[in-house]
């Protein structure tokens, strides 16, 4: 892909693209290799979000911990463990430079984002990570840091790979939804005990309950 198009992408992100550039990007998206361009667009946004600290730091640390725990507990030993150790070693080696820090943050962010539990599935995060670990373990250490110049690599999270980028979970939105559920729950309990429909209204809350688990 030409540098031109990347420059246009960058302009578009900063809201500085002119109409010609916009058309060029849209055209490029339709052409062969357009997916690659979409990936780049996605990565740019991810990088910007990380740099602007739009992802909750707490959440990052939290899940990163659990990922390491899941890795530690992984029963299949030798080869993978070595890979993980290698990766960690390399990470510490290059962690002095700012870029490297950014890269690690970004790849952890990517891992966090893509490994966010699918709301449809009800396994707790740790279990889900464990269940999917064989999938990402191979890709995260091997390609996560080496191949991508900015350190953000789409990490396989199992069978959902193709849809993963579109499941970008906005933490703030998630938190808001969880809070809304609190209000709905309180309201529905009163409706259930004082209303005409008996306990039925409680069922209304389920959607939020499921999404928040």
């Amino acid at each position: 892909m030409s540098d031109n198009i990347h420059q246009s992408l960058s302009h578009l992100m900063d809201n500085e693209a002119d109409e010609l550039e916009l058309r060029r990007i849209l055209k490029a998206c339709d052409e062969q290799g357009g997916e690659q361009l979409a990936d780049t667009w996605h990565r740019y946004h991810l990088v910007r979000s990380v740099l602007h600290k739009e992802f909750e730091q707490e959440q990052l640390v939290d899940i990163a911990d659990r990922i390491s725990v899941a890795l530690e507990l992984e029963p299949e030993p030798a080869r993978r463990k070595k890979l993980f150790e290698n990766w960690r070693l390399r990470a510490t080696q290059i962690s002095d430079t700012w870029m490297a820090k950014g890269a690690i943050a970004a790849s952890v962010a990517a891992a966090v984002v893509l490994l966010m539990p699918n709301p449809q599935q009800d396994l707790p995060v740790a279990q889900q990570v464990a269940a999917q670990s064989s999938g990402y373990q191979q890709t995260l250490p091997a390609r996560g840091l080496q191949q991508s110049p900015i350190g953000v690599q789409r990490v396989s999270a199992g069978p959902d790979l193709a849809q993963a980028p579109y499941q970008l979970v906005d933490n703030q939105k998630l938190r808001q939804e969880r809070l809304i559920r609190g209000y709905l729950m309180q309201h529905s309990e009163y409706v259930a005990t004082n209303g005409t429909h008996g306990m039925m209204p409680i069922v209304r809350v389920s959607g939020y309950q499921a999404a928040g688990q």
Partner: peptide, 11 residues
């Protein structure tokens, strides 16, 4: 939760 204010208001 204890649901106070129970009266058949809604019913």
């Amino acid at each position: 939760d204890r649901i106070q204010g129970r009266n058949p208001s809604g019913r």
